[in-house]
C-alpha cells in the first residue's frame, strides 16, 4: 500500500516514454523499413521482402567488408587497449610518486572530442608536413616515413594507434579502481605462504579483477561495434572504401538517399547488439540475485 503511494509509477513515465520513443522505436520501425524500397527518389514505399538483405550479402558490393571491418575493429582495438592498460594499471597501482599526475594525464585523451583527435592526428600524420614523418626525416630514417592514413598497408595500424592513444587511459582507470578494491590482507597472507610475484598475479590479482575485466570488455564491445566518429574523422572510410565500417556505411546510404538499404544495414547491427545486450543484462541480473 505505502510503497505504491510513495514510489509512484508516474516517476518512471517521462524517462521511459522519451527513451522508448526515440531510442528503441526507431530500431523496431527500422526493421520494417529494411524490407522496403524506401528512398529519397520516390514518395512511395513498397514492400520488397528480403531484397535489401540479398543485395547486402550477395551483390558483391563492399557491404560484407563493412561488417567484417566492424568485427575486426572491435576485436583488435580492444586487444591493443586492454592488455597494455592492464600492465599500466599494475604499474601505477601504488606507491609511485606522482602517480595521480600520471593517471590524470593518461586519462585526459579519452574526454577529448573525436573531432579534435581527428584533426590533431590528421595534421601530425600528414605525409609531407606532419610531425611524425618530419621526425623520421630529421633522424635520417626517411624509409620509416609513410602515408599513414592513405596507404592501405598502414591505415588500419594508424587507426588502432590513434584509438589506443585515446582509450588506454580510460581502460586503465577502470582497472586501477578494480585493483584498489582488492584487500591488502590477501596479498600479505599469500606472501607469508611464500607466493612470488607471478603467483600473486595469477591466483589473486587476475581472479579478483574479473569484474573490471568484464566491464572493460563489455564497454569495449559496444564501443567497437558502434564505432563511427574515429573512422569518420581520420579516414572517412578511405582510402577507397577500405576502412568503412557499418556505422559509416549507414551514413553513406543516408547521404545517397538509399534509406531502405541503410535501414537494413542498421537493422543487422540493431538485432545483433540487442541479442548481445540481452545476454549481458541477463547475466548481470543473475549475478545480483546470487549476491
Amino acid at each position: 500500500m505505502k510503497e505504491k503511494k510513495f514510489y509512484p509509477m508516474y516517476f518512471i513515465w517521462p524517462a521511459l516514454i522519451i527513451y522508448g520513443l526515440l531510442c528503441i522505436l526507431p530500431g523496431i520501425i527500422g526493421i520494417y523499413y529494411s524490407f522496403t524500397d524506401w528512398s529519397s527518389y520516390s514518395d512511395k514505399i513498397n514492400f520488397i521482402g528480403l531484397e535489401n538483405y540479398k543485395y547486402i550479402f550477395t551483390s558483391g558490393q563492399d557491404y560484407t567488408k563493412y561488417i567484417y571491418n566492424t568485427l575486426m575493429f572491435t576485436v583488435v582495438s580492444n586487444i591493443v587497449k586492454i592488455i597494455p592498460a592492464l600492465f599500466l594499471a599494475l604499474m601505477l597501482r601504488e606507491g609511485l610518486k606522482g602517480q595521480n599526475f600520471y593517471r590524470g594525464v593518461l586519462y585526459f585523451p579519452s574526454v577529448l572530442p573525436y573531432l579534435v583527435i581527428g584533426l590533431l592526428f590528421r595534421s601530425m600524420l600528414h605525409p609531407t608536413t606532419g610531425v611524425v614523418n618530419q621526425v623520421f626525416g630529421a633522424l635520417n630514417m626517411d624509409f620509416l616515413a609513410q602515408k599513414w592514413l592513405t596507404d592501405p598497408n598502414f591505415v588500419w595500424g594508424s587507426i588502432f594507434a590513434v584509438d589506443a592513444w585515446r582509450g588506454i587511459g580510460y581502460v586503465m582507470t577502470i582497472f586501477i579502481a578494480g585493483l584498489q578494491s582488492i584487500p591488502e590482507s590477501y596479498y600479505e597472507a599469500a606472501k607469508i605462504d611464500g607466493a612470488g610475484y607471478f603467483s600473486l598475479l595469477k591466483h589473486i590479482t587476475l581472479p579478483m579483477l574479473m569484474p573490471s575485466i568484464t566491464i572493460n570488455v563489455v564497454f569495449g564491445l559496444t564501443y567497437g561495434l558502434k564505432v563511427f566518429d574515429i573512422i569518420y574523422v581520420l579516414t572517412n572510410g578511405g582510402p577507397g572504401r577500405m576502412t568503412e565500417v557499418v556505422a559509416t556505411g549507414i551514413f553513406k546510404e543516408f547521404s545517397d538517399g538509399t534509406y531502405g538499404i541503410g535501414s537494413a544495414l542498421s537493422s543487422i547491427l540493431f538485432v545483433f547488439m540487442a541479442v548481445v545486450g540481452i545476454l549481458i543484462v541477463g547475466r548481470m541480473n543473475e549475478k545480483k540475485v546470487e549476491m
Binding site: C23, G27, I29, S266, M273, G277
Partner: peptide, 23 residues
Amino acid sequence: KFIYMFMILGIFVPVNYLALIKI
C-alpha cells in the same frame, strides 16, 4: 525489474537514425 533491464539495454543497441528522422 523488466523496465529497468529494458532501459539499460539502451547502452548496447544502436539508434537507427533513418527511422528516427521519420518519427
